[in-house]
Nucleic acid binder design. Sequence first.
DNA 1: GCGATACTTTGTCGATCGTTCCAGATAGTG
DNA 2: CACTATCTGGAACGATCGACAAAGTATCGC
Lengths: 193, 193
Amino acid sequence: MARTREFDLDAAVNAAMDVFRSKGYEGTSMRDLSEATGLGSGSIYAAFGSKDGLYLAVLDLYRQRYATPMVDLLRSGNDARAVIREVFIGTVDDITGDGRHLSCLIVGASMERAHQDVRVAERLRSTTQSLELALYDLLAEAQLRGQITTDRSATDLAGFLVTSLQGLRVMGAINPDRAALTRYAEVALTCLD
Amino acid sequence: MARTREFDLDAAVNAAMDVFRSKGYEGTSMRDLSEATGLGSGSIYAAFGSKDGLYLAVLDLYRQRYATPMVDLLRSGNDARAVIREVFIGTVDDITGDGRHLSCLIVGASMERAHQDVRVAERLRSTTQSLELALYDLLAEAQLRGQITTDRSATDLAGFLVTSLQGLRVMGAINPDRAALTRYAEVALTCLD
DNA sequence: GCGATACTTTGTCGATCGTTCCAGATAGTG
DNA sequence: CACTATCTGGAACGATCGACAAAGTATCGC
């Protein structure tokens, strides 16, 4: 063995995430990433291989940070309507939370990177799919219990809800009006009636 | 007077639009734009001033090309539900239309440019606002006629519908499944019931 | 304490970035 | 037909890009 790594990998990925979220992939330079992480470019390349490698690591952390808790919440066994409302409110909070204009990495990656990098596209599909699946399971059971409409299949409802969440991200980037976004979310939830 | 401009300005902006839609703003180089438009960089700078200038021209053309017809359709005086469904179907068609992976310039600009360039942000707000307004007028009258629900205000319904359209764009970029997107759109329309 | 190992830093690479400038080409004016 | 004003394409600018190699430094087993 020999010298151990001095910096915290997760902390570096975290710092890089903020930069990518505010500047996008192409808009972020290695210099930006060096400054944000406090690492020399050599260390970054040793740890992640390339700018793409770091971006993928950031994307994975983002998924773990935001998508996984959301899925866990949906699978917590609580009331379907309440849980889904909580997810929507949480998303609106996240959008309008700080004034740092950190856009959603998922939506940003969808627009900027999905068509350029198949590994990004895979991760995006996997993320939305796991979210849709968690919603599906929750909605299907709620339908059996007669708690929500059966006019539409649980599959369609789940896909629609994810679509609405993505839409809120976009609208929030254009006009981060918390009250308005909350009302739009409420309308979306009426589709369960 | 002297020599007249030889190339078609609109055609150049059109060609540039395809590049920006597939590569994003930062991902597009002046070299890309030169090749796509067939113009030397000197001509581009003479006509548009800068890369930003060309991007703004592209954004304006995109608004004129897609947003304006949509507003016109909404104001055509036809049945509200039918017209709105037509807008949604048209959007899904646009997303899944060709295999060239041309993402929505509005959504792309929202993610990549809105926070960097206030002129872009202004245009985005103006575009969504005019769309929301057209929807509002249509919905408010439909409410008076008892054609759609009055449980939610026309304002909220209009904002929600625009949100859904943006969401469809994002979902389409991740997974351009026409049938699925159509079903999600149908669910969104049930909010009018 | 020593050698071996692996991480960090620094400087630099060729390529490419957005932009500018210039020489040549072209069309209108007298 | 010459003159001139404007447009055109491409060369060239400094700056910055992502990537890398080499040198320096700190930690481990022994």
